[in-house]
Write a protein that binds this DNA or RNA. Structure first.
Length: 800
RNA sequence: GCAGUCGUGGCGGAAUUGGCAUACGCGCUAGACUAAGGAUCUAGUCCGGGAUAACUGGGUGCGGGUUCAAGUCCCGCCGACUGCACCA
């Protein structure tokens, strides 16, 4: 067969669409498989080759599962709220909804041109009222159950985008969207109480099949630590200053305390602080620093001693100074620490800078040089002296603190509550109302969706106000509770809202009575296999696991965890080995590849280019190699001979079926493809292939390159479409050779080779090995110390 | 700093439980078919010695170790990547 992809790809895509063979069917008796990929944000730039790689893995699995007889749900949609569309709207004056609609159209055309077997009947976009109605509904459920709260806080604010950002979106002190510096701004914001789910999110990891590094990242993100809270009294006030520590056993080494500059106790006792002016000056200085600068200046410790306030070490009774310093954060622990300079490097640096005492309580290290953070015998610590085990000393101290009522065991998490709002237009309106009489009142469920009002000006307001705040007809409303005049919340939800439950909607995408029918959820959930990027492991995945677990706890879904299995793909780098970016001009457009080489070649290449999880540079020459393979594959119909009976090829085909079957499950697509390339080489050498062998070969290549396979399937006269043909079985007996070549080694060095029958016994093989050409003379005059036979591999004669 | 992953030809990368290192692809070299080749096909291609062969020595970041046998296991370095990070 002559391979002309331009002629065949469009033709089969149309047939697939018309026949509806990729539509998932609710409730049918076959085993179900729900394969999910991270749905795209429909950017104006269109698809990236990275999307193709990300989707190809589940695509191959979904197609294989269908051929194996599964009822497959492989959906696609669009995560279509977000800043880029809105920024573009500000620039051009076009409505984000129009921009988004165009982008979605473009994306869906690109996706179809690649031949992905999505169930297009379930497609949706998160920015439509039909969808975000239910995003708002779930939000109201969270509100109803007390998981939504409002708090004044220092928030990460991007002066360029004019939005408040979550910690996740402002990592490294840079705005995730525009990369400009983030500053700290006090503001009233909405939070979701995700920290209440810290333990459940940790425990849930035991129920799922995620790669170890993915689990580890989530564990680090949640950052559970066990320790103790200890009460220090502030001299002459009776006031307690509580700290959190993981090493309460070092309490005798505490020589000073440090509070975060924002700590509320400072204001309470400002009359007693003689240098309060200095405190305020220092605070101002800190607020000017961005988070980025704060983390960059790790070396130099800054701070200020509170003149007039001291604390008492609760175990030694010594009076110790209190400082403020920005190396202590208000957001972790209690916002204050007990400093043990002898055994904590940060405290040590600070003590050196400010001349505080350093008392060692653990033997070891060189305290003149640096803090000693290792283990050792307790010293200078009264009743702990002599203990050498950290666990014991902590337990003893804790016991003592509890007895005295000045301390208690406690747990802390690094994860913070989720700042759940944006001061922008293009997001889900938050369905809450500010009533002067009733306070915060939720929009009644039956009034959902609370739709975005039409706007002509998308420029955000000053002081981080949403453009919605300028729309009087939207803002002014009546309170659902008292009927009085009230004002709507004008913030919208953050980008991550819509993607926190989209996998549930795919089970029942057009339901206008519920977010999804319970029976359908019971049938399809959980997601059996979810593939996506490493960059979403800590944000999107944690958020969606949280929402899902919340729904589960309230009887709204049937499984505690949404994703049974998670995998990830590695980046595709530019041909130069750098990350693809517009500024570098090294971006590869998948549409260009489809036009020049065909979708099948593109699909094959992104899975063949290397280890699926590794970052790999793009190579156009390697793309050509994949095209060459498909040309050779197409030509197999020319040498097909119904009567061919080549035993070697028969075995090679069965071995390849086995290899491909297993490698797909292990996501080792590159070696599955390599095996098929080897098979072509063997068939070329043999010069012939039977019809049944070719039929099997076509079927195992179908998940990778479905268009060419459909065409060849038809060419060799098989019935129906190969996409619905059964996955080939292999005969285990034919996957092993009955005669194999083994090596004969002397002292581990290869000295000869021989053919053996695998059923031959060990003694005979070793005896034969000694007769292999050249072996007898090499053994002459030597004494055989040991004879080793590894079945089917080698004989090793150890001589002296 | 903490956590995790990983160092294999000119390049991307293969290598069950330790068992012929470099599968498969790219690139390169030579040849075939061509008016032409950036198309296609065939052969060769880890490095060194050897005449092109037979044969032979070395070889998976570096240094040790265990073993009949180490890319794989153990110890110590060096380097890279990813995530988190004054987390008390």
């Amino acid at each position: 067969m002559k391979y002309d992809f331009k002629q065949i790809e469009g033709k089969w895509q149309k047939k697939w669409e018309e026949s509806g063979i990729f539509k998932a069917q609710d409730f049918i008796k076959k085993p179900k498989f729900y394969g999910l990929v991270e749905f795209p944000y429909p950017s104006g730039a269109g698809m990236h080759v990275g999307h193709i790689k990300a989707y190809s893995s589940i695509e191959v699995l979904a197609r294989k599962r269908r051929m194996e007889g599964y009822n497959v749900l492989f959906p696609i949609g669009y995560d279509s709220f977000g800043l880029p569309a809105e920024n573009y709207a500000v620039k051009t004056g076009r409505h984000p909804a129009d921009i988004t609609r165009d982008n979605i159209k473009h994306f869906s055309e690109q996706l179809r041109a690649v031949g992905f077997s999505f169930d297009w009947s379930r497609e949706f976009a998160t920015s439509t009222p039909e969808y975000y109605k239910w995003t708002q509904w779930i939000f109201l459920k969270l509100f109803e159950k007390g998981y939504v709260f409002r708090n004044k806080a220092l928030v990460n604010y991007c002066p360029h985008c004019k939005v408040v950002l979550s910690n996740e979106d402002s990592q490294g002190g840079k705005c995730d969207i525009c990369h400009s510096d983030v500053i700290q701004l006090p503001k009233d914001v909405w939070y979701l109480r995700i920290t209440d789910y810290s333990d459940k999110l940790l425990e849930g990891l035991d129920m799922v099949d995620y790669p170890e590094n993915v689990k580890q990242q989530q564990i680090n993100w949640i950052g559970k630590s066990t320790g103790a809270f200890v009460d220090f009294t502030i001299t002459g006030t009776g006031e307690t200053l509580e700290v959190y520590t993981t090493r309460c056993d070092t309490l005798y080494g505490v020589t000073f305390m440090v509070m975060a500059p924002e700590h509320p106790l400072i204001d309470k006792y400002k009359d007693q602080i003689k240098n309060f002016d200095g405190v305020e000056a220092y605070r101002k200085e800190c607020a000017k620093k961005t988070e980025f600068e704060r983390t960059q200046l790790v070396k130099e410790k800054t701070g200020l001693r509170l003149d007039g306030l001291t604390a008492v070490n609760p175990v030694s009774g010594k009076e110790i100074p209190i400082y403020i310093a920005d190396y202590v954060m208000m957001g972790y622990g209690t916002g204050a620490i007990m400093a043990v300079p002898a055994h904590d490097q940060r405290d040590y640096d600070f003590a050196k800078e400010f001349g505080a005492d350093i008392i060692p309580v653990i033997k070891g290290g060189n305290i003149d040089e640096e803090a000693y953070t290792g283990d050792g015998e307790m010293i200078n610590s009264d009743f702990l002296n002599g203990l050498t085990n950290k666990k014991d000393s902590i337990a003893r101290m804790l016991e003592y603190l509890e007895e005295k009522g000045i301390g208690r065991a406690g747990v802390q998490y690094k994860m913070k509550d989720w700042a759940f709002n944006r001061q922008r237009y293009w997001g889900e309106p938050i369905p809450l109302i500010h009533c002067p009489n009733c306070g915060i009142v939720p929009v009644p469920y039956e009034e959902l969706p609370l739709e975005l009002p039409p706007v002509d000006n998308f420029v955000p307001g000053e002081d981080g106000m949403s453009p919605l705040a300028k729309i009087d007809s939207f803002v002014n409303c009546t309170c659902p509770k008292c009927g009085g005049a009230a004002k709507r919340e004008t913030d919208t939800m953050p980008q991550w809202a819509g993607s926190s439950w989209y996998f549930l909607r795919f089970c029942d995408p057009h339901n206008d009575k519920e977010f999804a029918d319970m029976e359908k959820l019971n049938y399809w959930m959980p997601v059996d296999w979810y593939n996506g990027g490493m960059e979403h492991v800590t944000r999107h995945m944690i958020y969606s696991r949280f929402w899902h677990r919340f729904l589960y706890d309230n009887g709204l879904v049937n499984t505690p965890e949404p994703y049974a299995k998670r995998t990830y793909q590695g980046l595709i780098l530019g041909p130069d080995g750098d990350k693809m970016s517009k500024t570098k001009g090294n971006v590869v457009d998948p549409t260009d590849i489809v036009n020049e080489y065909g979708a099948d070649t593109l699909r094959l290449y992104v899975l063949f280019m290397g280890d699926y999880t590794a970052a790999t540079p793009w190579s156009e020459n390697a793309v050509k190699g994949c095209r060459r393979f498909l040309h050779r594959f197409a030509s197999l119909t020319d040498i097909m001979d119904a009567k061919a009976q080549d035993e070697k090829i028969e075995r090679a085909v069965h071995k390849t079926i086995k290899k491909v079957t297993e490698d797909i499950e292990a996501m080792k697509f590159n070696t599955a493809i390599a095996a098929m390339m080897s098979l072509i080489n063997e068939i070329s050498d043999a010069g012939t292939i039977s019809r049944s062998q070719l039929s099997a070969f076509i079927r195992i290549l179908t998940p990778f390159c479905p268009h060419i396979c459909e065409e060849m399937w038809a060419q060799i006269g098989e019935e129906g479409m190969v996409s619905t043909a059964p996955w080939p079985e292999y005969d285990e007996a034919k996957t092993v050779d009955n005669t194999v070549e083994i090596v004969v080694q002397i002292n581990g060095k290869v000295r000869g080779k021989m053919m053996i029958s695998v059923t031959e016994d060990k003694e005979k093989i070793i005896a034969d090995a000694k007769q292999v050409e050249r072996i007898p003379e090499l053994l002459e005059g030597k004494q055989i110390m040991k004879e080793i036979y590894v079945p089917g591999k080698l004989v090793n004669l150890v001589v002296r």
